[in-house]
Design a protein around this nucleic acid. Structure first.
Lengths: 182, 182
DNA sequence: ACCTGAACACCGTTCAAGT
DNA sequence: ACCTGAACACCGTTCAAGT
């Protein structure tokens, strides 16, 4: 039997599925290679490093956020980014840790900028940073709870998270309204 | 010569210094043990896992944020948290990734809550999440730039970061003012 | 063009045993 | 109370060689 044949796209697709199954700490190049019926070294034909592979995975995670469109309301755009991150285990951490080589993150930021009216780049960036921080912390708590290693005074984090997210998005909507009075 | 003797405090102090020198990806239990003139297994007398050690380091990173005090203005508290994170290489990532076992993070959140007037827990949490996301992204870009692996259309990230941080803090100050009209 | 096979220099963690 | 020594089951990455 000849060895399996892959391209960047098939590797990323499998990596994304494996990430969702096992989480970021267990997503190793060796385990991914096994999943692809290939030797670990074969992955380095498609990607120069694990970091580069994870950046492509991050891009894929954000693929569902809409194109920049000023007609979409700010909270809706913010929610679509959060939901894209939540759709994959450790999604926020992957995007945060590969942000320096931004691919899909750029489009997410542009979508926020458009929803803010187009002029306030610092506000768009700050809102994106809030969404990432919020979602990473939420996924962190979700995982801690799933393995039972949770601080004793904490209840289920998911319900309160909605109030916190709304508070954050409202803060930026307020800011935007004051800076650009209609 | 008898083996070196340590306690939790001395281990954390050395870990914090080593983190600042080499960064989170190179902060291994083995390297830390070498720095302490001890075998790697000795660290497991003081900490049950690397995760638990990093949580103690995170606590130490946030040790400089002031006690909760309603007389301190919100931007000042926000800035003291950001500066505490920036004072150590990869500080934001360490705090974010060990947040589930929150130690020092709790006090930072309480300081924000007090500065907001005491009543708006969701707003305090959201602001803390913004500060963490913002600072992790900033440190990410700082590191990418230091090794020259930066997106070609990006200039030095540090100056703009101040505008983005101010935009974020202003957003929450606005929110707080509207919710609790004086 | 894409993969194998073997190697290099590492990891976190456990556990019996030492002092 | 705190550490050693040895082991277990892993890592990411490189590179000559295969097809």
């Amino acid at each position: 039997m000849p060895p399996a044949r892959h391209d960047r796209h098939s590797v990323v697709t499998t990596a994304l599925r494996l990430l969702d199954e096992v989480g970021l700490p267990d997503l190793s190049m060796r385990r991914l290679a096994t999943e692809l019926d290939v030797q670990p070294s074969a992955l380095y034909w498609h990607f120069a490093s694990k970091q580069e592979l994870l950046a492509a995975v991050a891009d894929s995670i954000l693929r569902t956020v809409p194109e920049p469109d000023a007609r979409i309301a700010l909270p809706e755009v913010a929610r679509s980014i959060r939901d894209a991150l939540l759709a994959c285990r450790d999604g926020a951490e992957v995007v945060l840790s590969t942000y320096a080589l931004r691919l899909g993150a750029r489009r997410a930021q542009d979508a926020l900028l458009a929803a803010l009216g187009g002029g306030d780049q610092p506000a768009a960036d700050a809102l994106f940073e809030f969404i990432l921080g919020h979602t990473m912390l939420l996924q962190q708590r979700m995982h801690a709870q799933s393995i039972g290693a949770v601080a004793p005074d904490d209840a289920d984090p998911t319900p309160d998270a909605e109030a916190v997210f709304t508070a954050g998005v409202d803060g930026f909507a307020e800011l935007s309204a004051r800076r650009r009075p209609s």
